[in-house]
């Protein structure tokens, strides 16, 4: 049975029990050729303005791609990218990136007690998400995190939890939280390419 699942995933090697993806990671691997210049084939970002997406929850990736496609989330590049993707491709490529494993470690000498307390319940101390719907923040460029928080604060990006949280933050608090998560050492262990 396990074997059958692995074959079904196109030979993807997954640690432990294979999680069920709604998309097909092997088909998603081909779609990812359109993403690799910015997000890498394994979801470790290749340009500072793009976030790491390797090892994110599949549901988060799907939701963001649909938000770009519908216009609910807007971005100069991603709006163009998502507008060209079918529903099927969005699910497949989300499954591909979700199949990788993200790991994070605090830099030597960092005291975990200094993590931004208001965020850790969902985004973890090290930026690996603990909350079902939340993304990883580990190792993202500080300006990416800063930009997203300001987008939540100004209502350019909407989410029932994050809008309220960001509205209560000053620009300096935003930058401090961004610096914390950006300083985390982040790694993506690739599924077999």
């Amino acid at each position: 049975m396990r074997r059958a699942i692995l074959l079904g995933l196109g030979g993807l090697m997954l640690a432990g029990a294979a999680p069920a993806f709604s998309g097909d990671p092997a088909a998603g691997r081909k779609v990812a050729n359109m993403c690799r210049t910015c997000h890498g084939l394994d979801g470790f970002a290749r340009i500072p303005i793009a976030p790491h997406i390797g090892g994110e929850p599949e549901s988060y990736l799907q939701r963001q791609l649909r938000a770009f496609k519908s216009g609910a989330r807007r971005h100069e590049m991603m709006t163009v990218v998502a507008s060209g993707l079918s529903e099927r491709q969005m699910d497949d490529v989300s499954a591909w990136y979700a199949a990788h494993k993200a790991t994070a470690s605090l830099p030597a000498g960092t005291d975990p007690a200094n993590a931004p307390e208001a965020c850790t319940a969902c985004h973890g101390v090290d930026g690996i998400a603990l909350f079902e719907d939340a993304p990883n923040l580990a190792g993202e460029t500080n300006i990416y995190i800063d930009t997203q928080l300001k987008a939540f604060k100004r209502g350019k990006r909407t989410h029932e939890i994050m809008n309220g949280i960001a509205e209560a933050m000053s620009d300096e608090e935003i930058r401090a939280a961004a610096d914390w998560y950006a300083s985390v050492e982040f790694k993506v262990d690739a599924a077999t390419k």
Binding site: E117, A176, A177
Partner: peptide
């Protein structure tokens, strides 16, 4: 940055 973060979020 860390010290500041700590005081913000206390």
């Amino acid at each position: 940055a860390l010290a500041v973060a700590a005081s913000f979020f206390a």
